[in-house]
Nucleic acid binder design. Structure first.
Length: 424
RNA sequence: GGAGGAAUGGCAGAGUGGUUUAAUGCGGCGGUCUUGAAAACCGCAGUGCUCGAAAGGGUACCGGGGGUUCGAAUCCCUCUUCCUCCGCCA
């Protein structure tokens, strides 16, 4: 969430940013400023009352010690009264604080200057187009949901039997291809300086709140109510939260972490004809890269992460383009997002395979993730993350784009990992 | 799951009702000394909110929440986590 201070001091900029996002509830900005004003007034009165009470208690203590019991007893009623008043003010203060937070949680991040205007996916800017000719497949080329049946490598029916729709079972070379891609992505991340992390796949509510899945998007997560735990929708949640409630030293920047995890998404209400096969799943595998960076360097870091993802797609020899998301299509927490899309020749459409974002201090503020400056002040850090990469759609694109009459060819870079060169 | 013990600053570790704005040590930062360093010595050092131009005040925080009291790190209740032993188990 944004800080009240930021909204107060950059009111024009925040308003312009909300407009760019097509965010309608501008009245929240005034409400949050008024609520904070009120909160500070209550705190001032509360602090005054508590200070008076503390002073009186000291006085009573001193009277007792010098044996002036009667004088001390005479002051007790007054002290009790102050205590009562202080208690009430503290409750009011807590309520006021909660109200400010509730309002802040409803306000999305302020987009970066370079975010294009626009209402939705059609208005995204092609930041880096695919310039070579798009691949064309021989007549009779099939979409991946046919290929996986033909080679018996991914089985939706079995997954439906043991779990439900959207939980595929990977078999034989299908399973090995998953394992190979995970290992390849992790090795590439390590070579780029990311420390490998293997986090829990369930998180508590504090973590889900820290990265912004709660309170709004709780219906997108699987939940285990008996223990109050959420299945992670992305490794971003546990990995970024490793640094929740911490104060870093400036020289610790950048913190670079990479993690493979399965990702669980309920995808409530988003099923349809265009999400067939591997295009949208309840469980899929992903290697995520996360960085925690100094505010002054977060945008160069974002480009570095974009370049890393480009390198992966180059090595996999997949045709891709990079989009800069417009204000209307960006996620709630993001200040700037680049999406990667891979072209599927068989489906003849672009499939989103990666999203790389700078959250600036939006997540860090929720998480109380800070660093100490040279003059000993604490400031919020910046957080970034990106998929590098999400497997299911990459698999779909590999199967579709590399299909030949002799089988599906495995890209050169992946063969040391698969130890087979084709699926046939 | 059962029984017992514990939780204090970056770390270790005192503190069982009132100058505790938490002793002491280690580590950290600054200084003296030194060509430089080490050692020694001196000093500074938590986090949030808030008032203030600043200097500097106020307030809350000793695992979380609640209670007793004029006053709680300290007493009571409760939850959580960790340790030891037992049980179960990949």
């Amino acid at each position: 969430m944004l800080t009240v201070q930021f909204i107060r001091e950059n009111n024009e900029r925040v308003r312009a940013g909300m407009a760019k996002r097509n965010f309608k509830r501008l009245e929240l900005l005034d409400e949050v400023l008024a609520a904070d004003e009120q909160r500070r007034k209550i705190q001032q009165e509360s602090d005054r009352t508590l200070a008076e009470g503390n002073r009186l208690s000291d006085e009573i203590g001193q009277l007792y010690r010098s044996g002036r019991r009667e004088e001390a007893d005479a002051l007790k009623a007054q002290a009790a009264e102050l205590r009562e008043k202080g208690d009430q003010l503290r409750k009011q203060q807590e309520e006021a604080r909660q109200q400010v937070t509730d309002l802040l949680l409803q306000i999305p991040n302020c987009p970066a200057d370079q975010v294009p205007h626009g209402l939705g996916a059609d208005d995204n800017e092609v930041f880096k187009p695919w310039t070579a000719p798009l691949p064309e497949l021989a007549p009779g080329a099939q979409p991946h949901w046919e290929l996986i049946k033909q080679y018996d490598i991914i089985d939706f029916e079995l997954g439906t039997k043991i779990t439900g729709a959207g939980f595929p079972v990977y078999k034989g070379k299908g399973a090995k291809l998953q394992r190979a891609l995970i290992a390849f992505f992790l090795d590439e991340a390590e070579a780029a300086g990311y420390r490998e992390i293997m986090p829990p796949h369930l998180v508590n509510a504090d973590s889900a709140r820290g990265t912004g899945q709660l309170p709004d998007k709780d219906d997108q997560m699987y939940y285990a109510p008996l223990d109050g735990l959420y299945l992670i929708p992305t490794a971003e949640v546990p990995v970024t939260n490793l640094y929740r409630d911490s104060i870093l030293k400036e020289e610790e920047f950048p913190i670079k972490m990479a993690a493979y995890t399965p990702c669980f998404r309920r995808e409530a209400g988003s099923w349809g004809a265009h999400v067939r096969g591997l295009n949208r799943l309840h469980q899929f595998d992903k290697v995520e890269i996360v960085q925690i960076q100094h505010p002054e360097r977060s945008y160069e870091t974002l480009l570095e992460m974009v370049a890393h993802v480009e390198g992966l797609l180059d090595k996999l020899e997949l045709p891709y383009r990079i989009l800069r998301l417009c204000g209307g299509d960006m996620g709630f927490s993001s200040a700037l997002t680049f999406d990667f899309e891979v072209y599927s020749a068989a489906q003849q459409r672009w499939l989103e395979v990666s999203s790389v974002s700078n959250f600036e201090s939006f997540q860090a503020n929720r998480m109380q993730l800070r660093y100490r400056t040279k003059d000993k002040k604490t400031e919020l850090a910046h957080t970034l993350n990106g998929s590098a990469l999400a497997l299911a759609r990459i698999v779909a694109a590999l199967l579709e784009n590399n299909q030949t009459p002799e089988g599906v060819l495995i890209p050169e870079a992946l063969r040391p990992y698969t130890r087979f060169d084709r699926i046939s």
